[in-house]
């Protein structure tokens, strides 16, 4: 019957153990459908086989989530044994539907889309992106880049940039060569300061919103602005 075949098929494609890198340490996601023997074999192979070196080193916090699998006490002991054999593993969480797993799934869902545009944004062109955008090239005067997230320009920003176009005031606009014609963050519009009739031109700077308006600072002070960059907290390590 096809309806019942699908899950097994899926289980065959997906390895029985998934290891995810989280902010705090490692999260082991154990498949809930495959045979227990297969699961424990795969786990042992992962931790003590060819990939052993990847799990050695300093102490690391480990969370284990076995999903909806029903384990009897013997199986629990067997499974725990495998993890306890690793000296550097500090088991912090164990169970089904663990806190770690939920946080991991949350951050994954909320990771904004990231776009890369390669090329020059010329006068009269207006590019709109959902999420963050990295422009590899120049934004010429008269060109416009709009994003609901951050705008980063790997080149000269001489046109108009609009970050947080859907209202996110936490977004920034950054450029390697920063001489924008106009900056917009959420609903705040600002012009580049002029000096002797010439626009400001600086390097590796970014614009962000403060309570009293827009500010521009060196990129290395990004963390001072209270800005939380979106680092990928969960990286795929399914190849392991």
């Amino acid at each position: 019957m096809p309806a019942e075949e699908t899950p097994t098929l899926k289980a065959n494609i997906k390895p029985p153990v998934l290891v995810k890198l989280t902010k705090d340490g490692l999260l082991f996601l154990l498949d809930e459908r495959c045979e227990f023997v297969d699961l424990i074999e795969h786990l042992k192979g992962l931790l003590f086989g060819e990939t052993e070196a990847a799990f050695e080193g300093t102490k690391v916090k480990v969370a284990v989530d076995y999903g909806n699998r029903e384990l009897d006490s013997g199986e629990v002991r067997d499974l725990l044994d495998v993890f306890l054999q690793k000296d550097n593993f500090v088991l912090v969480e164990w169970g089904s539907n663990t806190e770690t797993r939920r946080t991991w799934a949350q951050t994954r869902k909320h990771l904004p889309k990231q776009n890369i545009f390669k090329g020059t944004v010329r006068a009269g062109q207006r590019l709109v992106f959902d999420g963050d955008v990295v422009v590899i090239g120049d934004v010429n005067p008269g060109g416009e880049v709009v994003a609901s997230g951050d705008v980063y320009v790997f080149g000269k920003l001489a046109g108009v940039a609009h970050s947080g176009a859907t209202g996110n005031r936490q977004t920034i606009i950054a450029a390697a060569d920063f001489s924008p014609m106009q900056l917009r963050i959420a609903s705040i519009v600002s012009r580049a300061p002029e000096e002797n009739g010439k626009y400001l031109r600086t390097f590796m700077e970014f614009a962000y919103l403060r309570d009293d308006g827009m500010a521009v600072d060196k990129l290395k002070y990004l963390h001072w602005a209270g800005y939380q960059p979106t680092v990928p907290v969960a990286t795929e390590e399914e190849a392991l």
Partner: peptide, 10 residues
């Protein structure tokens, strides 16, 4: 120059 830039894009 601005118009030239636009035309190059087109």
């Amino acid at each position: 120059v601005r118009d030239a830039d636009r035309v190059i894009g087109m």
